[in-house]
Simulated scan of single mutants.
Amino acid sequence: MNIDIQSVADKGNLDKERLILKVTADTDTGDYLVIQTGFSNGEVTIGTYNTFWFPYKAVSAGDLVVLYTKSGRENIKELKGSKKAHFFYWGLSSTLWGKNDRAPVLLHAPEWVSKAPDEI
């Protein structure tokens, strides 16, 4: 994968809570999803609670991808050395990461298929 989970900052504080990801090679954020899963006995569980699928956006190695739990407007901040921080917002009204029984899972899903409900 070309994006890695770095940390969750300010857990339990809706105004500041965010997942920080680091881009390790040029990629597109639209190929990635974050799933909030259960966590027990040192491992993620099959329980899923919330999902965020990033919109398509080219990002470069060394950039940061920051996903806030709260609502907000997507934006970019210039960093040192021509790198950027790309800000995304989950749009939720309560925190996700304040408990130790939930974990973020980052999925790389460049290929997928879907059908309209009336086509199934």
Results as ranks from 00 to 15, higher is better:
Y49K: 07
W53G: 00
D63H: 07
N50V: 02
G38K: 07
V34E: 05
S60V: 06
T37L: 04
T45C: 09
Y56F: 10
N41G: 11
I35E: 13
N41K: 14
T51Y: 02
A58W: 04
F39V: 03
I46W: 09
V34I: 15
A58P: 04
T48N: 13
P55R: 03
K57H: 01
G47Y: 07
K57D: 01
W53T: 04
G62E: 05
F54C: 03
D63I: 02
A61G: 14
T37R: 13
F39Y: 15
V34C: 05
V59P: 03
I46D: 14
S40C: 07
T48V: 11
L64N: 13
T48E: 15
E43L: 10
V59M: 05
D63C: 08
Y49M: 03
G47R: 11
T51Q: 12
A58V: 12
G38P: 09
F39E: 06
D63E: 08
S60P: 00
Y49E: 06
T48C: 08
T37P: 04
V34H: 06
N41T: 10
T48G: 14
L64Y: 15
G42M: 05
T37W: 01
A61I: 03
Y49F: 14
V44P: 09
V59S: 04
E43W: 08
F39I: 05
I46N: 14
G62H: 09
Y56N: 09
G38Y: 04
W53M: 02
T45W: 05
D63V: 04
F52T: 02
L64K: 12
T37E: 06
V44K: 12
L64R: 10
K57G: 00
T51P: 00
I46L: 12
Y56T: 13
G47P: 00
A61M: 01
T45D: 08
V44M: 11
Y56K: 08
T48A: 11
N41Q: 13
G42S: 09
V44W: 01
E43N: 15
G47H: 10
D63Y: 05
F52R: 02
G42Y: 06
Y49C: 01
T37G: 02
S40E: 15
V59D: 03
Y56Q: 07
Q36M: 12
Q36A: 12
G62L: 07
E43M: 11
I46Y: 11
V34F: 08
P55H: 03
S40G: 09
D63S: 07
I46C: 03
P55E: 05
T51H: 00
S60L: 11
T37A: 14
L64D: 13
K57C: 02
F52H: 01
K57Q: 12
F39R: 02
F52A: 00
G62R: 02
T37S: 15
G42Q: 06
I46T: 14
I35Y: 06
T37V: 03
E43T: 15
V44E: 09
S60R: 13
